[in-house]
Computed example of a mutant assay.
Amino acid sequence: MRTIDQIKESIAADFMNNEAVADLFGFPAGDNFAAHFSKVSVVNLLFYVFASAAWVVERLFETHRAEIEARIGEIIPHRAKWYKSKVLEFMQDRTLMPDTDRYDTSGMTQEEVDAARVVKYVTADENRNASLLTVKVAGEKDGVRCCLDPEVEMQLAAYLAEIKDAGVRINLVNREADTFNCSIDIYYNPMLLPENVRRDCEAAIRSYIANLPFNGEYTNMALIDALQAVEGVRIAEFRQATASASGMTAVTAIDARHVPAAGYFRAGQITLTMKAHEQV
Rank of each mutant, 00 (worst) to 15 (best):
R2F: 13
R2H: 11
T3D: 06
I7Y: 09
E9D: 13
I11F: 13
A12E: 15
M16K: 03
N18V: 01
F25Q: 03
D31Y: 03
L45H: 01
L45A: 05
L46G: 09
F50T: 10
W55Q: 03
V56S: 08
R59P: 01
A66P: 06
E67A: 10
I68P: 11
E69N: 08
I72V: 14
H78V: 07
H78R: 13
S85K: 13
F90P: 00
M91P: 00
M91V: 02
D93C: 08
D93R: 12
D99V: 06
G107Q: 13
D114K: 08
R117D: 06
V118F: 06
T123H: 04
R128P: 02
N129T: 06
A130E: 15
V135T: 05
V135P: 00
K136A: 13
V137S: 04
K141Y: 12
D142M: 08
D142F: 11
D142Q: 13
L148N: 06
A158G: 05
K164S: 06
I170R: 06
F180V: 00
F180S: 02
L193E: 13
R198T: 05
E202H: 04
N211H: 14
P213H: 07
F214N: 01
Y218S: 01
R239A: 07
R239G: 15
Q240P: 01
S246Q: 12
T249H: 08
T249E: 13
H258K: 09
A262M: 05
F265C: 05
R266C: 10
G268M: 04
G268Y: 07
I270Y: 07
L272I: 00
K275E: 11
H277F: 14
